[in-house]
């Protein structure tokens, strides 16, 4: 399956080249994606799947939009 992967702010350095159509085996979780990309878990504070906040062990489905963020704030 393919997902649209977005690594933001300080996580930008981990973004793979084919992030717009990032290929994954079926039954993959967000945690698996972090492992595959070498992103330390503690650097990821906020996870969005299709615009909804999720946890590390949330499963991914084909066509999902996954957004990964470090701790951010502003306003």
């Amino acid at each position: 399956m393919n997902i649209e992967l977005k690594c933001f702010a300080t996580l930008g350095r981990f973004a793979p080249e084919n992030a717009d159509a990032y290929e994954l085996p079926d039954e993959t979780t967000v945690a698996d994606v972090l492992t595959a990309l070498g992103i330390p878990e503690e650097e990821v504070k906020i996870i969005f799947i299709n615009g909804v906040k999720k946890e590390l062990h949330a499963p991914l489905a084909d066509g999902d939009r996954l957004g990964l963020f470090p701790a951010v704030g502003g306003g």
Binding site: F8, A9, G51, A71, V72, G73, G74
Partner: peptide, 25 residues
């Protein structure tokens, strides 16, 4: 000691929020 006040805000300014608020819809 907090990542937002020590890294996020000085590194990217408050506009660091554009992407996350956009992701959140």
């Amino acid at each position: 000691g907090h990542p937002v006040t020590s890294e996020g805000l000085p590194g990217f300014g408050t506009a660091i929020l554009v992407n996350i608020i956009n992701e959140a819809g």
